[in-house]
Amino acid sequence: MDKQNLAEAVAASMWTEDEATRALGMELKEIAPGRASLSMTVLPSMTNGHKTCHGGYIFTLADSAFAFACNSHNQRVVAFQCSITYLAPAFEGDVLTAAAVEVTVQGRSGIYDIHVCNQDGARIAEFRGNSRTIKGVHIELTP
């Protein structure tokens, strides 16, 4: 199985188990080795007292893209540190897209950058995730 097909198979496997991502109405737009893109429409229930998207939902969207990107190599990977910088508000009805890209992987540790934009391409947030590979794979491959 080539790397792209493996990334797609891993994403399909993860998707069926990821209740939180599906429950928030996220859509997997792109998957490739070390890359993922997910989108989500800001619903009324996702807004705060300022009538903007609650930062926790933006973080969750970025974190989900991070998860799909860092697990795309068929190794089980978890986050061990994440940070986010909010640049602009998002509003009800906005379609947010989080695009994750692998910056580096050294041994069991990785760094991923995730850019969150709205439907007009305006940057909403920048997220950086540090990953740690743990034991196990998503899909057992036979030689």
Score class of each variant (00 low, 15 high):
residue 87 L to D: 11
residue 142 T to C: 04
residue 109 S to V: 14
residue 99 A to H: 11
residue 24 L to F: 14
residue 22 R to V: 06
residue 134 I to R: 14
residue 41 T to Y: 00
residue 13 S to M: 09
residue 143 P to M: 01
residue 82 C to H: 01
residue 34 G to C: 12
residue 117 C to D: 11
residue 5 N to C: 02
residue 97 T to I: 02
residue 44 P to H: 08
residue 101 V to M: 10
residue 117 C to T: 15
residue 102 E to I: 03
residue 8 E to V: 13
residue 47 T to S: 04
residue 20 A to T: 14
residue 14 M to Q: 12
residue 121 G to E: 10
residue 42 V to K: 01
residue 57 Y to R: 00
residue 74 N to D: 07
residue 40 M to P: 00
residue 113 D to C: 03
residue 61 L to W: 04
residue 98 A to D: 05
residue 27 E to K: 14
residue 48 N to E: 07
residue 85 T to K: 09
residue 70 C to D: 03
residue 82 C to G: 11
residue 55 G to M: 06
residue 108 R to I: 07
residue 1 M to L: 11
residue 111 I to Y: 03
residue 111 I to F: 09
residue 12 A to V: 01
residue 76 R to N: 05
residue 120 D to H: 15
residue 4 Q to P: 00
residue 38 L to K: 00
residue 115 H to W: 01
residue 112 Y to G: 04
residue 81 Q to D: 15
residue 21 T to M: 13
residue 36 A to E: 08
residue 49 G to L: 08
residue 131 S to I: 05
residue 89 P to T: 04
residue 57 Y to Q: 02
residue 81 Q to N: 15
residue 68 F to R: 01
residue 17 E to N: 13
residue 46 M to Q: 07
residue 17 E to H: 13
residue 17 E to P: 00
residue 33 P to H: 13
residue 81 Q to E: 14
residue 48 N to K: 03
residue 38 L to D: 02
residue 79 A to P: 03
residue 48 N to T: 08
residue 107 G to C: 06
residue 63 D to M: 08
residue 20 A to E: 04
residue 72 S to D: 05
residue 33 P to C: 07
residue 60 T to V: 03
residue 77 V to D: 00
residue 84 I to Q: 03
residue 95 V to E: 14
residue 121 G to C: 12
residue 24 L to P: 00
residue 82 C to K: 01
residue 77 V to N: 01
residue 95 V to Y: 02
residue 66 F to S: 04
residue 49 G to N: 10
residue 84 I to H: 02
residue 77 V to C: 14
residue 112 Y to S: 07
residue 57 Y to P: 01
residue 131 S to P: 14
residue 67 A to K: 02
residue 74 N to A: 10
residue 138 H to A: 08
residue 50 H to N: 11
residue 81 Q to M: 08
residue 57 Y to M: 10
residue 129 G to F: 12
residue 64 S to G: 13
residue 44 P to S: 10
residue 10 V to Q: 00
residue 46 M to H: 14
residue 3 K to N: 06
residue 29 K to Q: 15
residue 15 W to C: 04
residue 121 G to M: 10
residue 32 A to S: 15
residue 30 E to A: 08
residue 80 F to V: 09
residue 135 K to S: 15
residue 108 R to A: 12
residue 30 E to K: 10
residue 16 T to Y: 00
residue 53 C to W: 00
residue 130 N to L: 13
residue 8 E to D: 12
residue 98 A to S: 10
residue 27 E to P: 00
residue 22 R to M: 06
residue 21 T to G: 12
residue 108 R to H: 10
